[in-house]
Every structure is written in structure tokens, then in C-alpha cells.
Design a protein around this nucleic acid. Structure first.
Length: 412
RNA sequence: GCCGGGGUGGGGUAGCUUGGUUAUCCUACGGGACUGUGGAUCCUGUGACUCGGGUUCGAAUCUCGGCUCCGGCCCCA
């Protein structure tokens, strides 16, 4: 729990340096909020129920829709862009397994009112900073869905077929994709089959994008998205994002993603490797607002925790105040309170244990210093401070104790 | 929704096939050896069979069901 709290705090800090404001939305919403966004089939994967007024409600399965609703309710005329971040639990009615829980946590943000390579670059830079700061070994994979959508337009592919193809691409199984295209979906169009496989296989650094541009140069409909993508690449360098992949097979399940999309993979988590997903979307119009573009993403917090290599324990108790004999016990509590009220994480002995036991306790807690309160020193109004790392001890006047601890602590 | 494997002191486990004295060991925790000083050692103490039904003289052990956990499909906004 301490570690989760640390990560949460670090993420908050980073999001706020990008000028995002935290919001909370209710745990449950009208069921229709989610069916509007994702279709009726979604109900199978939701915790839904009726309340006493017979309203259909659902526990939220994600936070983009609730945030969009909040925007429509009360923020439509706010200064743009609107930058919001959230940390909350979500619920999905599905079989739990490794890295997948019925209740899980998402940490994410929405940048509402701007769809531009600039906004996208900033959002990706934000995820990049999070990975760096948390020491997560993961890759950011970026795609522009306009490219494949443009190709579909060039070949007059129906919405229905498009959707099936996107699902297959999203699955990431090349064989399955190939089989389905050959035998069923695109059996009469070998050129398109080839292009799709080429896109599917395109994964690499920014040069991948130039290769694709060359490969698709005869198709008018992909020119615009390619320009946007290249602009983004340029901006990522400016924003200090020096590590990412261009991956033309990143699909994201839903229709409302139009432009740049990205996912973050932590390889060592294998089938649960995706720790973050996001992109630019056009969701607000779907709910009846103005046609405003947004960009957002969310970390799967639980998976992120699994991917963090070694997070420093920041929460250790710093000091333990120990009475040497029972006669200085009360004095030790006074000293402890003095330290606590100065913001120092302090523990005492509440069990009337002997000094040996208290020292052993201090050792188990991994505190950095023990303050020994004994009658002999108290006569001189002094305390013995023992450094548990080195074993050295020093006599410190009582009135200097707070300053001494602060000056000699790695926490300040 | 489908399939598989589990649930024994706080944590980790043995025992289960072949039912039978006081349920094993490690660790953690409490006390002591050790009356102004921690990490070692020794002694000692507390503490458990997931729940319900069935079979049986007798169930941690066999059997059925529930709950729950873990994993694999499906799905994954």
C-alpha cells in the first residue's frame, strides 16, 4: 500500500507540472453513458443494476466517458484547453486473471478542446516523464489511424468490414489476420491485403514512417495523416521524448479514436504487457456536445505497479525515541511529540519493553536513528542519538534535537 | 459465459494416494538467557485444517455443493 501511495503521489506531481487539475467522478453512472459510447454488447462486461427508482445504473468500466459527461454538464464554456486528470477505481464484469481484476485502478487524463500534433506531443511527453520517473522499462508505441482509414477509403471498404479488420489488427495475430483477409474479408483484393500486412509489420523508429510514406505515395487519402504524424515526430524531439516506436499496427478497439493513438508496453509482463493506452478522440459530439476533439490516456495502475522495477521506500520511520529505563519513559513521549510536531516520522515504545527489545524493534523498522532517553544524560539536559547505519552515537542538547535530526537526515 | 488448479497458525509449508494417539517443519510474533544499547545463538510461549451437507465407529484426508483465490480461453471501451 505504501508503494502504491508513493507511485500515486509521484504521478500526481508529474501531471500537475503539466498543469492538469485533478477531478473525481462518481463510481456509478447511468448505464446509457457507456452503451452510447461502446454499444449495447458492453452490458455483458459491466456491473449494472437498477436503483429504487428503477434507473439503470452501472459501475464505471473506465473514466473517459464520465469525464466527458462532466465536461458536458459543467465545463463546456470553460477556457480551452481543459486539462483534467483522475485516479479512480473501475469495474468490469469479467473473469479475473493475471493482471486483470474486476476492480482495478486507472490513472489518466483528458486534454479537452485541442487536437493538434502539439497537444499530442505534450500528452505523450507526459507519459514519457512518468515512465522515466518511475523507472519503468517500457516502450511507447505510436500510430496514426488516419493512415489505415485513408487506405480503406481509397478502396471503398464498408464500415462493417473496416471494423472487423481493425479488430483483427488489434489482436496482433498475423496468421489470423492473413487467413481472414484471404478467405473471407478481402478475398477479391490482393493489393489491399498486401498493404494491410505491410502496415501490420511496420514497427521501428521514425524512419519507419518515411518508408511507409514512400510505400503509400500514390494514395491521396493518407497524405494528411502522414503530415500530421511527421509533425508529431518533429515535436516529440522538441518535447524531449527520445524513446518511442512507430507502430502502424496499434489499433485501439473503438471507433471514436480518429488520429494519433498510442499504447505503452512493458514487455516483461507478457500477455498483460499493455500498461497504458490513449490517443485523440471525438467523443463529445457522440454525447451531444459541440464537435470538439480531445486527447487522453490512462495508465492501468495495477499493471503499472507490476512493471515498476525498484521503487525506493520513502515512507520509513525516521526516528525511534527509546527510554533507557522505565524512569525516563514519560520524557521519551514528550520528545517524540516534539519531533512529530516538527514533521519528523517518529516511533516510540508503547509496550514498556526493555531497552534491548526496543533496539531490536528499531532495527526491524529500519529507522535511521534512535534517540536514547536516559536519566544520566537528562541531568545535563542531553539526549544520546544513535545512528543505526554506522552505530555511532552523539550527545545532543534537548533544545537542539529537532534541528539535529533534520540536519542529519537524508530526507531533508 | 467456458476450462483447469488450489484454500492447513500472521506468512510459507508437510500430511491427503492407502481415513485412526497430541497435525510437520521454516519464518514471523510474545517472553526469557542479557538491569544504558540492535542485527547472532539458545530456551520457551501463543497460534491453523475455507464453509455446509454426505459416507464412516472415526474425516485435514473420501464424496457432493457453496464461497473464495489463482491461472488459461472469450472479451478487453
Amino acid at each position: 500500500m505504501t508503494q502504491r501511495r508513493n507511485v500515486e503521489n509521484i504521478l500526481r506531481e508529474i501531471f500537475e507540472t503539466y498543469s492538469y487539475k485533478e477531478i473525481k467522478t462518481p463510481i456509478f453512472e447511468n448505464l446509457s453513458l457507456f452503451t452510447t459510447k461502446s454499444g449495447n454488447d458492453i452490458v455483458n462486461q459491466l456491473y449494472n443494476f437498477k436503483d429504487k427508482s428503477d434507473r439503470d445504473l452501472a459501475l464505471r468500466p473506465e473514466l473517459t466517458a464520465p469525464v466527458t459527461r462532466l465536461y458536458l454538464n459543467s465545463m463546456q464554456k470553460n477556457l480551452k484547453p481543459i486539462k483534467l486528470y483522475y485516479f479512480g477505481s473501475c469495474f468490469r464484469y469479467e473473469r479475473p486473471q493475471k493482471g486483470r481484476f474486476r476492480q482495478f485502478w486507472q490513472f489518466g487524463c483528458e486534454l479537452i478542446g485541442a487536437k493538434s500534433p502539439e497537444a499530442e506531443a505534450e500528452v505523450i511527453a507526459l507519459t514519457f516523464d512518468c515512465l522515466e520517473r518511475l523507472n519503468v522499462n517500457a516502450e511507447i508505441h505510436i500510430n496514426h489511424l488516419g493512415i489505415i482509414r485513408g487506405i480503406f477509403k481509397e478502396f471503398n471498404i464498408s464500415d462493417e468490414i473496416q471494423e472487423q479488420l481493425m479488430i483483427l489488427i488489434d489482436k496482433g495475430d498475423r496468421e489470423l489476420l492473413n487467413e481472414n483477409m484471404k478467405n473471407d474479408l478481402l478475398s477479391d483484393n490482393e493489393t489491399l491485403q498486401e498493404i494491410i500486412l505491410k502496415l501490420f509489420d511496420s514497427l521501428g523508429d521514425k524512419n519507419t514512417l518515411f518508408e511507409i510514406e514512400e510505400y503509400l505515395k500514390e494514395y491521396e487519402q493518407v497524405k494528411e495523416p502522414l503530415i500530421e504524424f511527421k509533425k508529431l515526430i518533429e515535436l516529440l524531439a522538441i518535447f524531449g521524448v527520445n524513446s518511442y516506436k512507430v507502430n502502424l499496427s496499434v489499433a485501439r478497439g473503438l471507433d471514436y479514436y480518429m488520429g494519433i493513438v498510442f499504447e505503452i508496453y512493458a514487455k516483461e509482463l507478457e500477455s498483460q504487457k499493455q500498461i497504458c493506452g490513449g490517443g485523440s478522440y471525438q467523443l463529445i459530439k457522440l454525447f451531444g456536445g459541440e464537435d470538439i476533439q480531445s486527447t487522453g490516456f490512462a495508465f492501468g495502475f495495477d499493471r503499472l505497479m507490476m512493471a515498476i522495477n525498484d521503487l525506493k521506500e520513502l515512507e520509513n520511520t525516521q526516528v525511534l525515541v527509546a527510554p533507557v529505563y522505565d524512569d525516563s519513559r514519560l520524557k521519551s513521549y514528550e520528545i517524540a511529540q516534539l519531533l512529530r510536531r516538527s514533521g519528523i516520522k517518529t516511533e516510540t515504545d508503547l509496550f514498556k519493553r526493555k531497552i534491548k527489545k526496543i533496539m531490536a524493534y528499531a532495527n526491524s523498522l529500519n529507522v535511521s536513528k534512535v534517540i536514547l532517553v536516559g536519566e544520566k544524560d537528562l541531568k545535563e539536559r542531553k539526549l544520546t542519538v544513535k545512528d543505526m547505519g554506522s552505530g555511532n552515537q552523539e550527545l545532543v542538547p534537548i533544545e537542539d534535537i529537532v534541528k539535529y535530526i533534520k540536519d542529519n537526515s537524508s530526507y531533508y
